[in-house]
Design a protein around this nucleic acid. Structure first.
Lengths: 205, 205
DNA sequence: GATTAAATCTAGTACGCACTAGAAAAGTCA
DNA sequence: TGACTTTTCTAGTGCGTACTAGATTTAATC
């Protein structure tokens, strides 16, 4: 029973790594088997199909991202600035997706490439993740720290978008770290690029 | 010679539409042929390969996006606020990618799904597009309108990321318009979510 | 209306993919 | 060691893909 668990884990790791870097289509059962020195048919002793395997990887990915953000928020003092809450959430997400392992990255990387079944399967997970951010923004607006003239759903999606798109150009080991990306997203989204005055603050919507 | 040009255009349109909604892998030569009522083999009279066809669609897409942004910037008065320049560029991009046709959307949608050849082929185009935004940010920083304590490349990619990711959730005809998305991105990225003071303005990087 | 050129179709090939069946090997424990 | 179970391999199937060759139809020209 030990051997099986270990190779099963190897398969999951190899799949996560491939999904994170090559995407869904380029991640073939054969290529997964090769990276761990197996025949492709052997994969099916541990998983009944490619999509079940991929689905499990994505489940782990969302779970890790949610845990990372939840944990970061839980470590905040009871009385905290909503800006600080949004900041630690952004940092946790950036670390998980850019600095962290392949699993959360696999999630973001394969977004929009998955077959309908898998997309459907992870809908609820994504929705739950979105709720975390909705709450952060709502808290800020209600406490008066954040502007109330913006659509909160759109604001949420813009923050997540800025973070998620980063994996398309982010290269670990380059001159920019995951923490720096997070810091920049926070600064731009909360404080803005503009200095001082901000006379252009009017939204037609 | 007329007939050929017309069907050629039909093929391009159908491909752009499919790429924009279904992505690269799900866009098969057969499915393209079906939507315009042809046999898949007939496609090869007009294009030598799938990737040449896709490449042409993507070329048109980048060209349209660049044109849209350039044109919007050209219509600005000679003396203008750098914030206003960034604003019209963001709005033009949002309109082109979200409100506009399938061609620019195909570009964004298939980003990260393309085979290496095609990715390579469009590298320069993407780089040129990035330069437009780099210049907008540089102008703002040099004129003192934008903060100088942020990495400009990262700032640029965050803006583009927020805009590009929007197509993953944006649905034309829903309650949010392309213009509203653009307006929100501008507001958040230039003015920030936060109200007033902004005491949290320090970057460790 | 006959001749030529352009455009499309029919019928296939080759290949990579996910996946299966059953034999072989490796591991487990008396 | 020997009997049994777990794990992996060999060898294959069927399907969808991009793509090709040559016949056939449609359009243009004189």
């Amino acid at each position: 029973m030990k051997k099986s668990d270990r190779t099963r884990q190897d398969i999951l790791d190899a799949t996560a790594s491939s999904l994170a870097t090559a995407g869904y289509t380029a991640t073939t059962v054969k290529s997964i088997a090769e990276t761990i020195g197996m025949q492709d048919a052997s994969i099916y002793y541990h998983f009944s199909s490619k999509d079940e395997l991929v689905g499990e990887v994505l489940d782990i990915g969302t779970a890790r991202a949610v845990t990372a953000v939840d944990q970061a928020l839980a470590e905040l003092p009871d009385e905290h600035d909503p800006r600080e809450a949004l900041r630690v959430a952004i940092m946790a997400h950036a670390e998980a997706v850019l600095g962290g392992g392949d699993y959360p990255r696999a999630n973001v990387r394969t977004f929009g490439q998955l077959p309908p079944d898998l997309t459907q399967r992870h809908r609820q997970g994504h929705r739950n993740y979105g709720h975390i951010w909705t709450r952060l923004i709502d808290d800020g607006v209600e406490s008066g720290a954040f502007r109330g003239d913006l659509n909160r759903s759109v604001a949420r999606l813009i923050i997540i978008g800025a973070l998620c798109w980063a994996i398309e150009w982010f290269d670990a080991g380059e001159e920019v770290s995951a923490a720096e990306v997070g810091e920049h997203v926070f600064q731009m989204v909360v404080n803005g690029l503009s200095v001082g005055e901000q006379e252009s603050r009017t939204v037609s919507a």
